[in-house]
Amino acid sequence: MTLHSTTHRAATARWVPFALVALGLLPVASGGLRLGEVFGGPQLMPANPRFEALPAPMIVHLVSVIPFALVGAFQFSSQVRGRWPAWHRWAGRVLVLLGMATAISGLWMTLGYPLQPGSGELLYIVRVLVGAGMAVSIARGLRAIRRGDVRHHLAWMTRSYALALGAGTQVITGAVRSALSGSGSLDFDLSMTAAWAMNLAVAEYVIRHGPGGGARGSRPVELRTEVGNPA
């Protein structure tokens, strides 16, 4: 690899966390407005009888997923990890808890609420799989870092973050569905599912072709001084 390409990749990588934050900005903003309503703020979002009847899982989900999406974006920055390793480790501990709360509350919402109006059984099944998949990914990422396996830790946490950021990509896939005049429940379910599928596809590409991926990263990286400290 030439010096020019290395420098270019490093410069591009600096913008990755900000791109991830931008992707999640709209759902984060709408979630913040919804939380504001619950705690006595003005009603700026459309009424949702499901949330009003059982607000607890929605509150837990929003309180956990918003910081997970915003702070978690910077955990993937090699510059942040290299310059502030202690911050990365302590933030990682908190983010593991927030990520688990996000996954479990997402399952709670799926299983505890009636079907979302305009959606069907397909989206219900996919949401169960996404919640379970996110929880499993975080658990495996935590297990990997406790063994000192940084490569697999990063891979599993990348997958969990990709699933958590599905709402950001759903803004895009939903706009495409609207432009194509898809109005049925199946169209809605497919557009929502496509967002998670796209995020996972990008995550898998980064895992395999990013720094440390593929054959070059086939051997676990051992941490000789920080084993047991979740990143």
Rank of each mutant, 00 (worst) to 15 (best):
S5T: 12
P17R: 00
P17H: 04
P17C: 02
L20D: 05
V21M: 00
L25D: 02
L25M: 14
G32T: 14
R34L: 14
E37H: 13
G41A: 04
P42T: 01
L44C: 01
M45G: 03
P49R: 04
A56Y: 12
I59N: 06
L62R: 14
P67L: 11
V80F: 15
R81T: 05
G82W: 09
R83V: 05
P85N: 10
H88A: 10
A101Q: 07
T102H: 12
T102R: 09
G106P: 13
G106Q: 10
W108D: 10
P114D: 09
L115P: 11
P117I: 04
L122R: 07
L123G: 07
Y124Q: 12
V126G: 05
V126Y: 03
L129Q: 05
V130H: 02
V136R: 12
R140T: 01
I145P: 05
I145R: 10
D149E: 06
S160V: 02
S160D: 02
S160G: 01
L163N: 07
V171S: 07
I172R: 01
T173V: 06
R177H: 06
S178R: 14
A179D: 04
S181I: 00
G184K: 03
S185L: 00
L186G: 01
D187W: 03
T193M: 13
W196N: 14
W196K: 00
A201T: 13
